[in-house]
Simulated scan of single mutants.
Amino acid sequence: MKRLSFLIVVAAAIMLISGCSQAGRSAADPDVQKMIDRYPDLAGKPYTIEQVERIIDGDTFATAEGHKVRLIGVNTPEVKGESKELGLKASAYAANLLKGKQVVLFPDTGDTDKYGRLLRYVFIEQETTMFNERLLTDGYASVMTIQPNVTYADYFVALERQARAAGTGLWGNPDESEPEEKATAADKESKEGTKSAPTCQDPQIKGNIRGSSKIYHMPGGQSYEQTKAEQMFCTEDEAAAAGFRKAAR
């Protein structure tokens, strides 16, 4: 009887350990290890595997496990207001690749945003290219850097610049005579001889959304201190690319 009781306890302990590892694993299985090999900065970070149930927009989705997930470091156009058409295209792109799929989720330094959404680097299971990266490379997102999740900030800026220069995805410009309208500050500095993109470790421009109005406020502006930031930007070009207009004062 004592031996049977001991075996039951051991079995229960194994099941408990297995359940915990599924919820937040740090020891990678072979497929996940391939992702880490490509992105070494993720080594040692706990990860989870969940199923994408619903696409909210291009950079946010809901899982069958009951979480809302916001991709780190990228921003896609809104699916309402002036950017609706572009936002729907970005959402369709994400839905085509993610909906119904198992995804591997890695955190950076922060865990959630103020809305309770998980902030994550996302991989489609058994694929080694980060989905955050694919959004930028295929031209369906711009960079949005918010502390403390800045591990791939410089890399993402370079990816966005390449997509813009190539007119990839949403950056496609039917009027080839106006390419400068889509150049970021990083692009302009590069053309003037800067060898690398500037690093934005502390974005200061506040983006505020009220209904369909998206306005950004510069430091020193009349309403800057009172403005509740829903998005933060490094440059005015980045804010404009996300569909925001500058505050009048």
Rank of each mutant, 00 (worst) to 15 (best):
S196Q: 06
Q226G: 13
A153S: 15
A239S: 07
R70Y: 01
R249G: 02
V69A: 02
P77K: 13
I72K: 03
F61Y: 00
R164F: 00
R117Q: 13
Q204S: 03
H67D: 13
K34Y: 10
E125R: 06
V157I: 13
T199L: 09
R70D: 04
A166E: 15
I146C: 04
A62G: 14
Q126H: 08
R117E: 06
W171H: 07
L118M: 07
E82G: 03
T129G: 03
T109V: 15
V10W: 12
A94T: 03
E65R: 11
F156A: 00
K246Q: 10
S196H: 09
M232C: 13
F244S: 02
P179W: 02
I17A: 10
K114I: 15
A28R: 11
G221L: 01
R161P: 00
A141Y: 03
N96S: 14
V103M: 12
R70H: 02
V157M: 08
M232W: 11
Q102N: 06
H217C: 09
T194S: 15
F61M: 03
T109P: 10
N75P: 01
S5I: 09
H67C: 12
F233Q: 01
V150P: 02
D37E: 12
L71I: 11
E189N: 08
G58W: 00
A241V: 15
A166V: 03
T235C: 10
P219W: 05
Q201A: 04
V79C: 08
M1F: 03
Q126K: 13
G139S: 08
P174V: 13
G221K: 05
D41P: 00
M218Y: 03
A240L: 10
I124Q: 14
K89H: 14
I209Q: 07
A62N: 13
I209E: 02
A241F: 08
A13H: 09
A23M: 04
G211M: 13
F131E: 05
E65T: 07
G100Q: 12
E78K: 01
D108A: 09
F106S: 04
E78Q: 13
K195H: 09
G19S: 07
A94E: 01
I49T: 15
A166K: 13
T184G: 00
S177C: 14
Q226D: 14
S5W: 11
K191L: 14
K214T: 03
N208F: 08
A62M: 13
W171I: 07
E176F: 15
A183L: 12
G19D: 11
E225G: 06
G220H: 05
V157R: 04
S190M: 06
L7C: 09
F244K: 01
K84Y: 04
T63Q: 08
T129K: 08
M35S: 11
E192F: 02
K45Y: 06
A43S: 08
N96I: 13
R117W: 11
D41S: 10
Q201T: 07
Y155A: 05
A185E: 14
I56G: 00
P40H: 00
P77F: 08
D111K: 14
A141M: 09
I36L: 06
K114G: 12
I56Q: 00
E82F: 09
S5P: 01
K188Y: 11
S223R: 11
T112M: 14
S213P: 12
